[in-house]
Amino acid sequence: MFVVHLLLKDTNMLKYFLLLIALCACTTYAEFTTQDCRELGFIKAQLMCSSCEKLDDFGLEAIKTHCKECCTPDKQPAVQRRWPKAILEVCTCKFRAYPQIEAFIKSGRPAKYSNLQIKYMRGLDPVVKLLDSSGNVQETLSITKWNTDTVDEFFETHLEKPAGKNSGKSAYSVVEEEDNDYLETNRI
């Protein structure tokens, strides 16, 4: 009470007090900047809000509020979409640059997905094309930064399980690029 009385007598002090309150309100409700989040150990562009919810499982409740201030809202609905078919396109010449993709392809993991096609395309960085039931490409995803387990988990989560007597069939298809010269279109 005494402090408020002193503030009201001195108008300059009142202005500073109101400015201080305004600044506190702004910082309380302002979103952290990318730099603020980086200093806290979060990468704002890559942190999804659903990840913040998992912090409790690891005893990290103390950083959950900062995590929520740095996260990007999840754009996917609660039910994830499953695709009838997928094509993993990659160039074998790029296996040195992407050993995790080579490891996935050469392991037995692709055999779990009968609706997965591996297509070798000259000069192409690894991508996954998700197709609808008509075989039309609906989404294309770069998987250059994915590890072997992430690729496997993605197909497990996003590929439909084939129904019928061939549902347990472990056969995926591999398509070699046609033997045509890829520079043929540059010829005069």
Rank of each mutant, 00 (worst) to 15 (best):
L7S: 00
S133T: 07
A97G: 02
H5A: 07
T148K: 05
Y98I: 01
C52M: 04
Q80K: 14
Q35L: 10
A25H: 10
Q35K: 15
G41Y: 11
F104D: 03
V3P: 00
L130W: 14
K161H: 13
L7A: 03
R187D: 09
S134W: 10
D74N: 14
Y29I: 04
D149F: 02
A171M: 13
E176V: 04
V174H: 02
I101A: 07
V127S: 06
L88Y: 01
L159A: 03
D10C: 07
D36Y: 04
T148E: 15
R109D: 14
F95I: 00
I43L: 10
T28G: 10
A171L: 14
Q117M: 13
N115E: 00
T92W: 02
F155N: 02
P99Q: 05
Y113I: 00
N12V: 03
K9Y: 13
E176G: 08
E153I: 00
E176S: 13
S51Q: 14
C91Q: 01
K44A: 13
R122F: 07
E160Y: 07
H158K: 08
Q138D: 07
T33K: 12
V137A: 08
M121Q: 06
E160T: 08
L8A: 06
M1E: 11
K112W: 14
K161A: 09
W146L: 02
S142D: 15
P84F: 09
R109N: 12
S167L: 03
Y29T: 08
Q138I: 09
F95A: 00
I118K: 01
L23C: 13
T150L: 04
F2M: 12
E156T: 09
V127I: 15
E178I: 04
T65L: 07
C67M: 03
A62T: 04
E177L: 06
L130N: 09
A163L: 10
C49T: 03
F17H: 10
S107W: 10
P99T: 08
F32S: 05
L23Q: 10
K64W: 09
